[in-house]
Design a protein around this nucleic acid. Structure first.
Length: 569
RNA sequence: CGAGGUGUAGCGCAGCUUGGUAGCGCGUCUGGUUCGGGAUCAGAAAGUCGCAGGUUCAAAUCCUGUCACCUCGACCA
């Protein structure tokens, strides 16, 4: 490929809207063309990068017995109605009507399509397990696209769906897929990737992991324990932080008071101002036989479990539920003594089911001296770990918060889709059962942007060889010099014939211009032919990351370049 | 959806307060001199000033409405 004919402009000025480097470099380097909010066209260099990433993904998916298929982008609404997601998913699902007024959607993920595809096929246990995947355009009507290719609305994604006859089999396959993902990121040259436990969100299911590129510009926060290696997305956070009262920022706050509280007092305390329905749960600690009272509003079963696990306590038989207008008498045993109170205020909750209990002083407390108790209390935030927080696994105060970009994720879905869409098989024992599913995604464009973000300098991206748009960038400095032109042309031919992917710059532009463009294209190996070098009978070879710079004699150039490429690999 | 901001040539911006011939830099095109880190000189092309309505002799500029985009937050398979 001759650079002169490469479609797309490269330029010096950083566009005003680009907040992160990868975005700016991809615009400046002629990789992407902005079309609309969260919508981009790809020029040839990025398309080539994407193709190489896709090929790596494909090979690794095939290695774990994946079968590449293709689902439709446009799906009838009825398909998503089967699983209930047509109504449960919000506005990120783009809905529209065809000419007859029938409702359709643009695919944002393809669990339903995958189940629909294999529902008839998978009627016997003998067909399992199997995995199907596709690499295809998705559309998600994100509320706020940002940061170039990091968060877009239309994007290419590899999504895979596996089907199993048991949870054990799913878990074994899930582990294989986890390893395949590690290989994929390693092969693409991405270094700083970790997998973290995550929140399953709208996908349903229980176990899931996100693969995060650790970078300060990431939009997710991750808690990482430096002593035991525990890692989790902050959204999924089973973590606890000890705070001073003035630092309590979080939602789910447990207040230990040094003074005994009776349930009656606490209930009075709540009764004064809490108007919403509220569930008070008494927990009994196994170890010390002390009580903890939790006040929960709303449907917070998941968090109750989380708290129970952390405290190592069980729900006391004196479980109390009260509707608005809590009445101490109604609530029951009033002499139980508690040494901790968890205030859980759903009125401030967000979708992560965490909420703010920091406003305790706003309540009117009619019992003991709550104000004093609060002043003297220990505060623990659940769910939102802070730097230096307590690790829920090893209990060391060694939690560290990092930022990350999610470049892949894997979920154990269970039977959510197979059951709702009535996909069943007959098992060995003659019983009709629902298969359990896993699903596994990687965003191709986001991965490319993440690699650019991790590997660039002020002049441009530094693409790893495995995904670089070309392997060699051949510069003919002073292409108007006949000798230079003749030699460079010949070398270009030789390299191509040898199967080397080469971008050839024989434009009559200044060397500075040429080198700047080469930096923006980020090709790993640069070969420079110039009058100066010709005089010495050499070509100059240097790596894009500036770590290597060598000269090769003219007659050995082809072999020398191939040898260096092998070393880079 | 909440808060803030921006729409003027392909890109980056000035002009708006105080209404009066559409400006600058980069890029693009032509020609010259240059040539190892975005050279330089001369010349040229290119803009419905986001859109609609209003005020006015006259609107990029003032008023009203509207749309789009960006940032922060909310949300996020």
């Amino acid at each position: 490929m001759k650079l002169e004919k490469l479609v797309g402009d490269r330029f010096k000025e950083k566009p005003a809207d680009c907040i992160i480097d990868s975005h700016a470099l991809m615009i400046r380097g002629g990789y992407i063309k902005y079309v609309g909010s969260g919508i981009f066209s790809l020029y040839m260099p990025l398309k080539r990068i994407a193709r190489k990433i896709e090929q790596i993904i494909r090979e690794e998916m095939d290695k774990i017995d994946g079968q590449e298929v293709l689902f439709p982008v446009v799906m009838p609404a009825g398909l998503l109605e089967e699983s209930g997601r047509y109504t449960s998913i919000g506005k990120e699902l783009l809905r529209f009507n065809d000419r007859n007024g029938n409702p359709y959607v643009l695919g944002m993920t393809h669990e339903e399509a995958s189940v629909q595809m294999v529902r008839e096929y998978g009627q016997s246990y003998a067909k399992y397990p199997f995995m199907i995947y596709q690499i295809q355009t998705k559309f998600r009507d994100e509320a706020r696209p940002r940061a170039g290719l990091i968060r877009v609305r239309e994007f290419t994604m590899k999504d895979a769906y596996s089907f199993h006859t048991s949870q054990e089999d799913l878990e074994a396959y899930y582990a294989r897929c986890h390893q395949a993902y590690e290989r994929i990121f390693q092969r693409t040259g991405l270094k700083n990737v970790v997998s973290v436990a995550s929140d399953s969100g709208m996908m349903g299911g229980n176990v899931s992991h996100e693969f995060m590129l650790l970078t300060p510009i990431g939009e997710d926060s991750i808690a990482i324990c430096e002593s035991c290696g525990y890692r989790a997305n902050l959204e999924a956070a089973e973590s606890i932080t000890e705070n001073r009262r003035d630092e309590v920022s979080h939602p789910l706050t447990m207040v230990y008071t040094p003074h005994m509280q009776t349930i009656e007092n606490v209930c009075n305390f709540l009764h004064a101002d809490v108007k919403k329905s509220c569930k008070a749960v008494v927990y009994q600690r196994n170890s010390d036989n002390k009580y903890i009272i939790l006040f929960l509003r709303g449907d917070l079963e998941a968090n109750e479990t989380k708290i129970t696990n952390y405290l190592g306590c069980e729900i006391h038989p004196a479980l109390i539920t009260a509707e608005s207008g809590i009445n101490a008498g109604y609530i029951g045993p009033v002499n139980l003594q508690a040494d901790a109170i968890v205030l859980y205020d759903m009125s401030l909750a967000n979708a992560n089911n965490v909420c703010c209990g920091a406003n305790v002083e706003e309540y009117h407390y009619t019992g003991l001296d709550m104000q004093r108790d609060i002043q003297n209390a220990e505060y623990h935030d659940f769910a939102k770990a802070k730097d230096g927080g307590i690790c829920p696994h090893c209990s060391a105060a060694s939690l560290h918060i990092s930022r990350g970009i999610e470049v892949g994720n894997i979920f154990q879905l269970g039977t959510k889709y197979t059951a709702s869409m009535n996909m069943s098989y007959i098992d060995q024992d003659g019983q009709i059962k629902y298969p359990v599913m896993g699903c596994y995604g990687i965003g191709v464009g986001r991965l490319a942007a993440a690699i650019c973000e991790e590997s660039h300098d002020e002049y441009g991206p530094i693409w790893p060889l495995a995904i670089a748009p070309w392997q060699v960038h051949l510069c003919a400095v002073r292409a108007d010099d006949a000798q230079v032109k003749e030699y460079a042309d010949a070398l270009y031919e030789q390299l191509q014939n040898a199967g080397v992917e080469v971008i050839y710059d024989d434009r009559s532009v200044s060397a500075g211009n040429m080198f700047s463009d080469a930096d923006l294209l980020g090709v790993p190996l640069r070969v420079i032919v110039s009058p100066r070098n010709m005089k010495q009978n050499i070509v100059e070879v240097q790596s894009r990351d500036k770590s290597m710079k060598e000269t090769i004699r003219l007659e050995n150039a082809l072999q020398g370049i191939q040898d260096i490429l092998k070393q880079l690999r």
